[in-house]
Design a binder for these strands. Sequence first.
DNA 1: TATGAATGAGCCTTCATTCAT
DNA 2: AATGAATGAAGGCTCATTCAT
Lengths: 202, 202, 202, 202
Amino acid sequence: MSKQKLSHLKQSERDARRKLILEAARSLFSKKDFRNVNVREIAAEAGVSVGTIYNYYADLDELFIDVFLKNIEEITCLLDKENSEGFPTLEKLCEIYITYLSQNMTFYQMMGHFMLGGKLSHESTTKLNQRMRILMDRIEAILRARGFHEDARSLSHALFSALNGIMISYAGYPGRNIEEVHKYTTKLAGIIAGVFKAKLKD
Amino acid sequence: MSKQKLSHLKQSERDARRKLILEAARSLFSKKDFRNVNVREIAAEAGVSVGTIYNYYADLDELFIDVFLKNIEEITCLLDKENSEGFPTLEKLCEIYITYLSQNMTFYQMMGHFMLGGKLSHESTTKLNQRMRILMDRIEAILRARGFHEDARSLSHALFSALNGIMISYAGYPGRNIEEVHKYTTKLAGIIAGVFKAKLKD
Amino acid sequence: MSKQKLSHLKQSERDARRKLILEAARSLFSKKDFRNVNVREIAAEAGVSVGTIYNYYADLDELFIDVFLKNIEEITCLLDKENSEGFPTLEKLCEIYITYLSQNMTFYQMMGHFMLGGKLSHESTTKLNQRMRILMDRIEAILRARGFHEDARSLSHALFSALNGIMISYAGYPGRNIEEVHKYTTKLAGIIAGVFKAKLKD
Amino acid sequence: MSKQKLSHLKQSERDARRKLILEAARSLFSKKDFRNVNVREIAAEAGVSVGTIYNYYADLDELFIDVFLKNIEEITCLLDKENSEGFPTLEKLCEIYITYLSQNMTFYQMMGHFMLGGKLSHESTTKLNQRMRILMDRIEAILRARGFHEDARSLSHALFSALNGIMISYAGYPGRNIEEVHKYTTKLAGIIAGVFKAKLKD
DNA sequence: TATGAATGAGCCTTCATTCAT
DNA sequence: AATGAATGAAGGCTCATTCAT
């Protein structure tokens, strides 16, 4: 076997391992607030030792960011799939996004964490910005397809953050159950979609 | 002096003390992320002992909630003042709110904290809901004054959460300075105001 | 009781507690290499909790330095007692010092630790220099009393470090037992005393 | 090729590898305190894997000892060269030794490490004693050449340890720069040389 | 023999909360 | 009611050593 192949194999093994840890973390985060998850739990969930986590991630923050990036990618992917079948309506877009967030609370939890106090390395910042831009490209594409041409980028940002805000403000609303919450956040998302659409007819 | 008066005095003293602690916490939170503030710092800032904090608050979360409630009240108050001089335009409303958030990061930081993982006592939940409802009354009043009659309550929620989302998603955007951020969040708030207004003309 | 007295009491209590921890550490160090002692052991030995250690010392290094300073003080004290009864001969001085070191291995172990890699805070450095100077004053006084007048300070340093060197180089000599070691280090100290005395007769 | 030759070749290869690792470690130690160097750094510096280190050394301590032994040999060698051109004066001897230590801090750092807490295998102890004895032979030879006949061995030990002590006590003196330190340690070494010489004239 | 990922015990330190005074 | 020292569980991270390939 050539050295190149070997190193390629090793690299893919490494990637697999990293993914294993990443998915273990994501799995845990779906069960409990990521701020209350510790290295030992992640290691146990991944079936590796604590030390191994640090062979793949410099520190926990780096892992958390990877989870965040993974979420961004997934949403991007989701929209890509949708877009390939003809661009969705605004309502559909909002619904897709809200549904994704409902099933991935970590995403907007981390949004709060990293966008506010969290210290990001320069590298992480760069990666984050890059992936975020790609996601925004998709949203912008949909808006353009729906007829929004003027300042479509800012509109994308506004829509994106409005939907995040809905989840953060109402997804954990004390005293309501999951179903009620999902129904209401979806309704609010619909309202947002509605007002955006109204803009078109100006 | 009657017993009643005495107890009244004591109660007001107690309130004053509680307020002292509350304001000390708020003062600290304006300087640093509330997640990195600890009891000792708050006690020091308030000029009381750590133990005293626990004489007025069952635990730190209760204090944090009090800060949160205080913020809600302040915004409510801000809107009351504005409303008393004739209801503001949507643009103005959004600007007021965004500006307040810009100067009180803790508010949307705590939104993320409590609305997501934070455990709230039943009492706190009740209080929170009550105050939130009052704030929503004000926003709803403005929307109604601007001609939004259909499902004005949900519209208020949608607007409110959209603005929160703008701050959470962009207020700490890595790699941008405070001024740029404020300019952009204000712009996005303006867009939100714009789309909401468009809805009217449908 | 006056407030002053109270605060005085409290301060002395604090000092007592600090001393308790200090002595617990010293006790442990007499049994095993200080580099292998951890906070939990010290806490257990002192009969306090781990957290308490940190109420009295910013970190372990600060505690270690305190032990080191305590040693310097003890030696100073030892020499003071000796000097008060008429200055000892060089032989006696060397013997006293070597004997002290034999019973306080930590001292020259820490000499190696702090004088070489150890990071000292500015405050610690200051304290250390000050105490060291006082110790050197005593040694210098003895040398002067014995007739060494020319550059007595440097001679003190030379003598002091020579004796340290004897302990470091031979006190743990592999393959020898404690008694043999003590006998030999004492002999070497005697030699050092002898050559220093010879200098006088030049 | 005979089997013997082959095994000889292999042995010399093995020696070369061991030397490679040894020199890598020494190179690192000249840049930073050996107590803060870890296996991975050494492996990287040597251009081999971590596992390879353990193919040549049972554990890190064994490698450290090898470095120590190498230092002893170097000093021995240095003195041999000097002695071959006629035995140096005591002053010269002290200067040579102090200068060597100044450039090889690891030596007296390890002196502290191994002579005190470090666990040495029987084999290491044997080797160490043997090399140390050879070094002492050289020092003793110089002392004898300078006229010290009585108990020249112990005098050698005393001189050797005194010089070590100077370095340990003053080479890292907090608050002084390298040049000042070297000047002062050299001065102290001169004093030691001076008092030893005085002994002769008794 | 060389490799280097995996291991996991062990370390220092933090901090919300308690409780004797 | 006020105090603040004491508590100790919990957490992130390191690193010498092993071992399957």
